[in-house]
Computed example of a mutant assay.
Amino acid sequence: MDIAENAALVVVDVQKGFEELDFWGSRNNPEADDNIAALIDVWQSTGRPVVYVRHDSRKPGSPLRTGYEGNGFKEYVEQRRGKGSGAELLVTKTVNSAFLGTPDLGAWLRAEGVSQIVVAGIQTNMCVETTARMGGNLGYEVLVAYDATYTFDLEGPFGWRQRADELARASAVSLHGGGFAQVVTTADVVAAAK
């Protein structure tokens, strides 16, 4: 695996509100936060650009709503912001894709000459997947650090219910098998980026 010298790490929605399990339900991959931290650390130590994405929910009861404590980044992310020697960007959004936020992520990546992005964060099958799909559609080489993501159990139509692990695997298969992104492990990305 080759990680470009200017590959951008896109850290999606690693916010305190996702700790409110009474709202979200059961989650998968308890190691995700450690893996996200490891990615940020290697990106910062190698001077690569990091993009922090924050979801500013417009739903009144959402743990991610603007003005509520849960809207803020988790402590380990907040502690790392501004600490690297590479470029850094904060994108805020109200929809699933980081490419539809403010400021314009695609314009910033183009201005920085970035053609490869590594996506990590929350939720695997929601904002991570949507950002990865759009990145692929826009012509970026997208890698998704699968074990640096997590999601929650979810109910869909007809009373169908999927566990978080099942949803995460389905996202990985769709992204990788559909050609939107290469789905990889944090260890492989870290080793290649050093």
Score class of each variant (00 low, 15 high):
M1E: 11
M1A: 14
N6S: 09
N6T: 08
A7W: 06
A7I: 03
A8F: 09
V11W: 00
K16P: 01
G17H: 03
E20D: 15
E20V: 10
W24T: 10
N28Q: 05
N29S: 12
N29W: 04
N35T: 06
I36M: 09
A38N: 02
L39C: 05
L39D: 07
I40M: 10
D41A: 14
T46I: 04
P49L: 07
V53W: 01
R54A: 12
S57P: 13
R58W: 00
P60M: 04
R65G: 05
R65N: 03
G67F: 01
Y68R: 10
Y68S: 08
Y68V: 10
N71R: 08
G72Y: 01
E75D: 13
R81Y: 00
K83V: 11
K83Q: 15
A87L: 11
A87P: 08
L90M: 13
T94V: 13
N96A: 15
A98S: 15
L100R: 15
L100D: 12
G101M: 06
G101I: 09
D104I: 08
L105K: 11
L105H: 11
G106H: 13
A107D: 11
R110C: 01
R110T: 11
A111E: 13
E112A: 09
V118N: 05
I122A: 03
T131D: 07
N137V: 03
L138S: 00
A145R: 06
A148Q: 08
T149H: 03
T151K: 07
L154T: 07
E155A: 13
E155K: 12
G156P: 00
P157H: 07
P157Q: 10
P157E: 12
G159H: 06
W160T: 11
Q162L: 14
Q162K: 12
Q162S: 13
A164P: 14
V173T: 14
S174H: 13
G179S: 07
Q182P: 00
V183S: 02
T185G: 10
T186F: 02
A187E: 14
D188K: 13
V190K: 06
